[in-house]
């Protein structure tokens, strides 16, 4: 499956049905990041049920300095 994560195209050979699958592959857990798919926010409690489909554009953001 091909998706775009943080502006970069990623191809997954393995089965990635849900957002949680993808986050697990990247070792992302904890409460210091947030996710949007196709410009819509996905709250943490939906990671497990959020289906991923071909071509989805996923943004994963973390706290950074800002003014």
């Amino acid at each position: 499956m091909k998706v775009v994560i943080n502006g970069k195209e990623k191809v997954f050979e393995e089965e990635v049905n849900t957002l949680l699958n993808i986050l697990s592959l990247f070792g992302k857990n904890g409460d210091y990041f947030a996710v949007a798919i196709n410009s819509d926010f996905v709250p943490r409690y939906k990671y497990e049920s959020q289906k991923i489909t071909e071509g989805d554009v996923i943004e994963i953001v973390t706290p950074h300095p800002g003014g």
């Binding site: 070792g27 904890g30 210091y32 943004e59 994963i60 973390t62 706290p63 950074h64 300095p65 800002g66």
Partner: peptide, 17 residues
């Protein structure tokens, strides 16, 4: 104030946080 940004490695944002 702070922002949210894409992070190369998740630990980068976590460290700042």
């Amino acid at each position: 104030t702070m922002s949210l940004r894409r992070s190369g490695g998740i630990s980068e944002g976590a460290a700042f946080w």
